[in-house]
Amino acid sequence: MDFKLEVVVIPVSDVDKAKDFYTGLGWRLDADLATGDAFRVVQVTPPGSPASVIFGAGLTTATPGSVQGLQLVVDDIAAARAEIAAHGVGISDVFHDEGGVFHHAGTTGRVTGPAPRSYGSFASFADPDGNEWFLQEITTRLPGR
């Protein structure tokens, strides 16, 4: 049985502002449906991704901006970072973790510059509410991936 991650729900405070942010990044708008002021679903999909992001009204009780560590995998971290920045979004410099495994929470252990291996280079940005995203460069997949 396959279990495919299809959708991630993120909490936002202003649905229209979030919609403008994500579509402004070039993410595809898949749906914007409402059954009234108390329930609205907006679905967007990053370019090339099989999984989508949903936000809206009445979808989650999580605090807006509380999601951390969402990963977007790219094959060229410098180009992806430049593309995000070109949309006027603040994004960190490319970094790798001092331990070389995976990034720590917050900015602890960050070393400026790309990692010497696949899976190790990151850049981070946040949406208007503070939901945290990471770009992760993967140039060579691990066996079986």
Rank of each mutant, 00 (worst) to 15 (best):
M1I: 02
M1G: 14
M1P: 03
F3K: 06
F3V: 14
F3I: 13
E6K: 15
V9G: 01
V12G: 04
V12E: 03
V12C: 12
S13D: 12
S13M: 06
D14E: 09
D14R: 13
K17F: 00
A18C: 05
A18W: 05
A18L: 05
K19D: 05
D20T: 11
F21Q: 08
Y22N: 01
T23E: 01
G24T: 05
G24S: 00
L25V: 03
G26I: 13
L29A: 03
L29S: 03
L29E: 07
L29Y: 03
D30K: 06
D30R: 05
A31S: 13
G36A: 09
D37E: 15
F39G: 02
R40S: 01
R40V: 10
R40N: 14
V41C: 09
V41Y: 10
V42M: 06
V44E: 07
T45D: 04
G48F: 03
S49Q: 08
P50C: 11
A51C: 12
I54W: 13
I54N: 06
I54G: 04
G56C: 01
G58K: 11
L59N: 05
L59I: 08
T61A: 13
T61W: 09
Q68T: 02
G69L: 08
Q71C: 12
V73R: 14
D75I: 00
D76Q: 12
A78F: 04
A78Q: 05
A79L: 13
A80C: 10
R81F: 02
R81A: 14
R81L: 07
R81Y: 09
A82Q: 08
I84S: 06
A86Q: 06
G88D: 08
G88F: 01
G90A: 15
G90D: 14
D93H: 13
D93L: 11
V94P: 04
H96A: 02
H96N: 14
H96R: 06
H96W: 10
D97W: 03
G99I: 08
G99A: 02
G100Y: 10
F102M: 14
T107K: 12
T108W: 13
G109D: 12
R110A: 03
R110H: 09
T112M: 03
G113K: 07
P114E: 14
P114V: 08
P114A: 15
P116R: 12
P116Y: 05
Y119K: 04
G120N: 07
S121F: 09
A123V: 09
S124E: 14
F125K: 10
D127W: 05
P128H: 07
P128Y: 07
D129E: 11
G130L: 05
E132L: 13
F134E: 06
Q136V: 07
Q136S: 13
Q136L: 15
E137D: 09
I138E: 11
I138Y: 07
I138D: 03
T140E: 15
R141P: 07
P143A: 09
P143Q: 09
P143W: 10
G144E: 02
R145A: 15
R145T: 13
